[in-house]
């Protein structure tokens, strides 16, 4: 009985090539775009930052291209450690990682609203001093020297500091401090600075940054001073970019 019915359907489908007959497969839409190719990434790096079951998933849209490329290479080559990403990237070429970095750097996504400020006045003072003035005695330049006057990053290697969740920044500082595998390769300038910061300072800075609104024009700045370029070994990094 059912067999007969199915046979009849096939017959009908064959005759009229009617769309939507239960037997015919709906063709899968796989456009030749980066967006389609990046579906494995957006399961975690969606439109919003989110806390996953195993980790904090940072936003990647709109970050400087060179910065993203370095991070992707770090994950693939075991210099920044997060296993699910390392497995995804393990057999991909540098060129494909550059294409991914380019794609995500040009993606515009709205920023989340600032987190409520939970710091004491003393913590705010501490944070502002490091961000605006630095601490020459410990060779810590002001954060703005590298991360841009507006703290929105400097093309093409230095990421912005606004619009990042406090928890994510604290985790990054922790990873730099514990040295080890995290981000060892490229930008030692940042890990050197992070190692100088005390836990109290790192927490204060992260809390202050997370509570700032993101300026309306969200582009990153250009032009790092010669001294900072040297410190971060920018010339060597430029070789890896197209």
């Amino acid at each position: 009985m059912t067999r007969l019915f199915v046979a009849a359907l096939i017959y009908v489908a064959g005759l009229a090539s009617a769309p939507g007959v239960a037997i015919a497969a709906n063709s899968v839409d796989a456009p030749d775009t980066m967006a389609e190719r990046m579906k494995p990434c957006t399961i975690c790096h969606g439109r919003d930052e989110k806390t996953g079951r195993d980790a904090y998933y940072p936003r990647i849209a709109g970050k400087p291209e060179g910065y993203l490329f370095n991070q992707l290479r770090n994950f693939r080559d075991g210099r920044r450690y997060y296993r699910p990403m390392a497995l995804l990237l393990e057999n991909l070429s540098d060129q494909y990682l550059r294409d991914m970095a380019h794609y995500f750097s040009t993606l515009k996504q709205p920023y989340p609203p600032p987190e409520p400020m939970a710091s004491t006045p003393e913590e705010i003072k501490l944070a502002r001093k490091l961000i605006d003035v630095g601490d020459a005695a410990r060779k810590i330049p002001p954060c703005r020297e590298c991360h841009g006057r507006e703290l929105m990053g400097t093309q093409p290697f230095i990421p912005g500091l606004l619009g990042l969740p406090r928890a994510y920044m604290i985790a990054q500082f922790g990873a730099w401090r514990s040295g080890g595998l995290m981000r060892r390769q490229s930008m030692d300038c940042m890990s050197e600075i992070a190692k100088e910061l005390t836990v109290k300072e790192a927490n204060a800075v992260a809390a202050w940054l997370a509570a700032q609104p993101v300026p309306a024009h969200t582009g990153s700045g250009v032009g790092l001073s010669a001294e900072m370029s040297r410190r971060c070994n920018i010339a060597q990094l430029e070789e890896a970019l197209p």
Binding site: E36, R37, L88
Partner: peptide, 16 residues
């Protein structure tokens, strides 16, 4: 992802 190769430089992937 399947590997990047000369014949398939930008493969499509499967999410974890």
């Amino acid at each position: 992802y399947p590997p990047s190769t000369a014949g398939n430089q930008r493969p499509y992937g499967m999410p974890p």
